[in-house]
Write a protein that binds this DNA or RNA. Sequence first.
RNA 1: GUGGGUGUAGCUCAGUUGGUUAGAGCGCCAGGUUGUGGUCCUGGAGGUCGCGGGUUCAAAUCCCGCCACUCACCCCA
Length: 438
Amino acid sequence: MSTTFQNIRGTFDILPDAYTDDGGTRIASSAEWRHVEATVRDVLCRYNFEEIRTPALEPTELVARGVGESTDIVQKEMFAFERSGTQYVLRPEITAPVVRSFLQHHLDQRGGVQKLFYLGPCFRAEKPQKGRYRQFHQFGIEIMGADKPRADAETIAVLMAVCDALGLTDLKLRLNTLGTPERRAEYVEALQDYLAPHADELSETSQRRLERNPLRILDTKVEHEQEILRDAPKLMDFVGEESLAHYDEVKEHLDGLRIEYEEDPQLVRGLDYYTETTFELESPGLGAQSALAGGGRYDRLAEVLGSDEPFPAVGFAAGMERLFLALDAADVDRPGTPTPDVFIAALGEEAERWVFRTTQSLRDAGLHVAHDLMGRSLKAQMKEANRQNAPYAMIIGSNELEAEAATVKEMESGEQQEVDFDELAEYLARRVDGTEAG
RNA sequence: GUGGGUGUAGCUCAGUUGGUUAGAGCGCCAGGUUGUGGUCCUGGAGGUCGCGGGUUCAAAUCCCGCCACUCACCCCA
């Protein structure tokens, strides 16, 4: 259409106003993003989590090891490149980076359990579609150093609390346990043995997974594969007693908090690092991308990343874009762009200079002030004040300069009055406070 | 990687069996008001009709190719 540049495919601009992209998806305004981010931070802080910020760029090896060589993410979705002999990757998720940072900075030495949260962009080179982008935004938590089932339950509880604070209801929580890696390995072997005779009945991808990542076959949506799986060995039968006890206690805590969930033995998360408890939060009716968040326990990740000692850990990651989809579907009210308290219109060069200085001092006094920078007509400036939804407009011309009193107009009623220059800040502050009470 | 859909103004879209100068609404700018917004009236700016080729006296419209965007499968947040 035009010859100017366009944003990279699979990314999107967040503008002052919400808009609809070419696929009909509503892209929320920057004010809505700020509101959601603020709500997320607020709830997480109330649950006593502390923020951690790590770079978008990480060593490729960290992601390969942390997320797992067999995963789709590492196999085909990394934005990775080499520069001067160093292998870089734009992080596809933030758990491995957080654990890296935790180990690098010996955060365990701060004492006790570390409850961390993050919020930021991630990158995956997938084919974009509704609710799925190449640059997307995740927030999440990691509880480092706690192996008690209460940590699992708190992870889920804080996730639900964030959704609740945002106004999301009708969510579905699915829960499962994967047991220990050792027992899981036994199970994988049994599953392979069971499936091997059926290999030629399986789809191409499932055949490939049979070798590399057999657990993922459990997710299949192919009907005859599901039939084959019906008589397959069950993961639950391989999960050890300790794991089952842990799982039971997690459920007990959730019951105690009145958090509803649905057990789903088929729930196998796509990332290699999960052990024991796993869960996924869904917003039904969102279509293809209904998963808002996923998480679970990953007690072995620290060691996979080179730690000499184990750090039991549990956390979740949630997708901001998915959250917005759910908010749209639920028609939840969100704030609009902040509007100026007052628009100051100037008539003539002398007034412009006075307005420019006064704007500054009113802003110093804490007011949100707008003014004209184009030298436009009074009519145009009033129109601008109206467009910006300023509750008050102030008019400064030669009359006002001479009288040393401003004409202040209340936009809604259209009423005007004169206010002495030295009382302006106080007058406006008082009026604005009154209107903002609601 | 595999399928489907869509490309006309800033936005939403119309454009007849191909027909000469490509339109509407909204938005934007200006005037009606030599110092006053929202409503109303008038005017204006803004388009390589995604790109390239072909058919034709004539293409936004028909044909071919390409590109972009998008939805879905897979998988994930």
